[in-house]
Amino acid sequence: MNRLFLSVLLLLAVGLPLGRAENPTPREARLAEIKKLADGLNYQHGEITLRGGLARIKMPEGYRYLDPKDTQTVLTKIWDNPDTGPRSLGMLVPPNLSPASADGWAVIISYDEDGYVKDNDAAKINYNDLLKQMQEGVREASKEREKKGFAAIELVGWAAPPRYDANAHKMYWAKQLRFGDSNEDTLNYNIRMLGRRGVLVLNAVAGMGQMAEIEQATPAILSMVDFQEGHRYTDFQPSTDKVATYGLAALVTGGILAKAGFFKVLIAGILAAKKVVIVGVVALFGVIKKFFAKVTGRSSSDAQ
């Protein structure tokens, strides 16, 4: 993303007037376009059912929901991402913020129907060792990114180490990422909700300066989104239901994202510092498979 577009977002954030000149500059034209797109978003409130009854969102006052179509508008037309293929289940927008504002953040929701993820490895995972393996993988992935003209990426460390709620079957953690020579690190806040046939994936797009704000909002987010009856983790039927080929450790390393391919998982957003972020740690599938083998003790073929 170029400096011109980032400047446009800054102008939008401070509310400068639009289109006064008879011949608007490219900056003014882009600003007007963003404002028109943002004004056209159809926010929904209250209770939302996802994917024909798979899950339900019960939003507290102030929170708003954007459906997959509007979410795609935000991702591709306001945040200026490439169209990455599979669409989300929507987006949660916190109170008093807009996806088009420079200090805005949002939670993108998607679903991976890879089967029932066993959580019996929860107490066995050494997250310090896992972090080192992830950092190694990100370094390898960064080399590929740079060859294709993208900024280098570094996994600095945990912004918040993984935590698993065994009763609710929900896991959440945060990573601190660094892109190129940026003077502000990126926050990648992850929430995973285990279900009968797959995992609800919630990713918060934000800057490191918003860590405390998102941490404060996490309990509300965890409580407002859940599977409906028949799709819950406890509804699993061992005799008929598919079991995922990975466990909790793979959720953290990004195994689900890696399967989608190197560039299909690029989703960008705008930070308070007006720069591009990427949701998730992008890594090559072959590197991720090595992670699985180290973490689970299985062969690389088992991790496929």
Rank of each mutant, 00 (worst) to 15 (best):
A249D: 12
M134L: 15
F263K: 04
L10P: 00
A220L: 08
R196P: 11
I288A: 11
D114A: 10
I153P: 00
G53E: 05
L50M: 09
S88A: 12
R51D: 14
W79P: 08
D80I: 09
V14Q: 09
A152N: 00
L31H: 08
D235A: 04
L177S: 00
V295G: 05
V138L: 13
L11R: 09
M59S: 08
D235T: 05
Q133H: 06
M1E: 07
T25K: 00
R196D: 10
G195V: 06
L194A: 03
T240I: 07
A174N: 09
G15P: 05
G85L: 12
G62V: 08
P99H: 07
G180H: 02
G40V: 01
S300I: 14
D121Q: 06
I34E: 03
D165G: 06
P94V: 03
V8N: 00
K148L: 14
L257A: 15
L257M: 14
G149K: 09
E215F: 02
R20M: 03
K148N: 09
F285E: 15
S300T: 15
A260S: 14
V93M: 14
I48K: 10
S223K: 15
I108A: 12
F150R: 11
T296Q: 14
R196M: 12
W173R: 03
R64N: 04
T253L: 15
Q216C: 02
T73A: 11
T186H: 12
D165Y: 07
D103N: 11
F291C: 09
Q304F: 15
P219C: 06
G104Y: 04
L50F: 05
H169C: 07
F291G: 05
A122S: 11
L177D: 03
L266P: 01
E61H: 09
V117P: 12
V93D: 11
I78V: 13
Q133S: 09
V281C: 15
L187W: 12
D114S: 10
G53D: 03
G254D: 11
Q228N: 14
M193V: 08
K264F: 13
E215L: 10
D70P: 06
V156P: 04
Q228W: 04
W79Y: 08
N120M: 07
F5I: 04
G46R: 04
L6C: 09
A174C: 14
A249M: 05
L97S: 09
L248S: 08
K58N: 10
P95K: 07
G255A: 13
F236D: 01
Y172I: 00
V225C: 05
L11I: 02
I57C: 15
L37M: 04
V8L: 04
V225Y: 02
F5L: 10
L97C: 06
F292E: 13
G85D: 05
K118L: 14
R197H: 08
G280C: 06
P86A: 09
Y116C: 07
R56I: 12
A249S: 14
D241P: 07
K118S: 10
G198D: 06
I109G: 10
T296F: 15
Y111K: 07
A122W: 12
L194Y: 02
L155K: 01
R298Y: 11
K289L: 15
K275L: 14
P26I: 02
A217D: 03
P162H: 06
D226Q: 13
M193F: 06
N190V: 15
G269D: 04
N167E: 13
E213M: 10
V107I: 13
